[in-house]
């Protein structure tokens, strides 16, 4: 994990000029896919992801349906061209794991019990990856779910914290993720501008207890900023729509 010959922090600044607690620039567009019930295109630094939500709809194959609640399916998938070396297409061990933990984060907020015997499908495609793509995907999926009008208790905002050169940094980019000492992705369930609970927490590498507490606080602040941007993106689309000026990409 660590390598002494690459310096990731120079003069108190990170390689791309950010401070320790700065997010990468985020861009969001809501409702970009016409055939999906809800969708969102999101850029988080060099990450480019698109999320699509379908449902509640009939579950196929039929036997997967749950008679008392909806089933949530989440597919995280990386395009073959999303990374420098061509990625073999299709699900692999990593993407299956990410799909599972992300689905569990989403399940915490979706009101599944309102739609027995139905299914809510979420597809997130990574078009370009640059560390923290699972957090970008969760942010996009959360916005797409709101866009689809799916009943939810709140929203999900997600961000990672990494430890590089013995300091904690928010929202690591590729170099920091590859050569850092630890990477901790967080996702929070946010309701009414307040963080209610942690919906996802993973850790790769090691940090001390004190560092972890500090990382959590950093992630909370970062997630709140992302949450504001998510709200903004949705409101922008719907306010524009009610003025009849919507331009959809087909």
């Amino acid at each position: 994990m660590d390598s002494k010959d690459i310096k990731l922090i120079i003069d108190g600044k990170r390689l791309d000029g950010r401070g320790f607690e700065d997010l990468r620039p985020i861009k969001m567009r809501v409702g970009v896919l016409k055939r999906a019930d809800g969708s969102c295109y999101l850029e988080m630094g060099k990450n480019k992801v698109v999320a699509a939500v379908f449902g509640p709809r009939e579950v196929h194959p039929r036997h997967l349906a749950d008679p008392i609640k909806a089933v949530v399916r989440y597919r995280y998938n990386m395009a073959p061209f999303s990374v420098e070396e061509r990625k073999r297409p299709g699900p692999d061990r990593r993407s299956v794991e990410i799909s599972k933990v992300s689905r569990e984060a989403i399940e915490a907020i979706v009101m599944k019990e309102l739609f027995p015997r139905s299914g809510i499908d979420i597809f997130v495609e990574v078009l370009q990856a640059d560390a923290g793509s699972r957090t970008a995907c969760l942010n996009a999926a959360s916005v797409a779910l709101v866009d689809a009008g799916v009943p939810m208790k709140g929203m999900i905002s997600s961000v990672a914290v990494a430890k590089v050169d013995d300091v904690l940094v928010l929202d690591p980019m590729k170099e920091e993720d590859n050569y850092g000492q630890a990477d901790i992705p967080f996702a929070f369930f946010i309701r009414n501008d307040r963080i209610e609970s942690i919906a996802l927490l993973q850790m790769d590498g090691r940090v001390s207890k004190e560092e972890f507490v500090q990382a959590l606080e950093m992630a909370k602040r970062g997630a709140m900023k992302i949450y504001e941007m998510q709200k903004e993106a949705i409101k922008t689309k719907y306010i524009m729509e009610s003025e009849g000026e919507v331009n959809e990409i087909e």
């Binding site: 907020i109 939810m152 709140g154 929203m155 946010i190 309701r191 949705i234 409101k235």
Partner: peptide
Amino acid sequence: PIVLPGEL
């Protein structure tokens, strides 16, 4: 006004 899920 437009409200989002989870708004009090």
